[in-house]
Amino acid sequence: MSWWDDALHRAVVEIVLAGALAAIIGVQVVVRKLSFFTMALTHATFPGVVAASLIGVNIFVGGLVAGAVVALAVAALGRRPGQNSAAATGVVLSAGFALGAGLVATQDGFSRDLSSFLVGSILTVDTQDLIVTAVMLVVVSALLLVCARPFLYGGFDRSFSGRWDIVLMLAIEAVVVTVVPAVGTILAVSLIVAPAAAARLWSDRIPMITGIAVGIGITGGLGGLWISYQWNVAAGASIALSVTILAAVAAALRRAIQVPTGPPSSRQVTTTAGLA
């Protein structure tokens, strides 16, 4: 029996890979304020996954196609006068979720599938899932490294964006599609957003933020897996919770450290004025 045959061992590897993958893309999500979009993606790829499994196509492909449609729909609808991207994202989210849930409901054993979609089933990942996650980790890291500059400009200067926005949205989508089947939607959102949001408070430099986020993501993920194993609670939820708690601690720690160096005293104000 090889080391890989143990479900818990596979889960450990998956959470390390997924934690890193989610944290890396999460930095972009947080900096560009795309959390709601990410949430919508997790819900709206649902019908794609369900439809793919109904007609017998690879569910990864199904999710990818549905996600691409969603990304383009949000981009197109959000630009219309009078509409805003929040509303457009909300409409797409509702539509995708309702469609997916409706499709599932026409099948037997529907509640089982639905709950695994929501909270994942990390203890049942197979070797193929691991390979997909590992490959995506390499691909997305490479993409972010190559496109670091345009993404940065895109985040800084709205007029520059456009096609880079689409590239970024599709990258987020690819990550979501990769991690959701293994870990579920809620966990995907917390793995993507929480580590990066906490790391953002610690630094203004993207590489630094990314490093901290990956650390928080992997540590929190392993901690959550251990909790779930110890107390027999849903793995996806306990991982999401432990990542969030870790991120909250990191954020609170930052606040605590910040106080002494915080607002300049009136003496400093005078000094600044004197120099100016």
């Binding site: 947080v30 304020k33 917390s190 949001a197 996806g236 939820a237 999401a240 919770l241």
Partner: peptide, 19 residues
Amino acid sequence: SDDASTAVVLAAMFSIGVV
């Protein structure tokens, strides 16, 4: 930012429910 904190609160609270 509004949306990051909203996402974190959402995921954390929902996870408590699921646990």
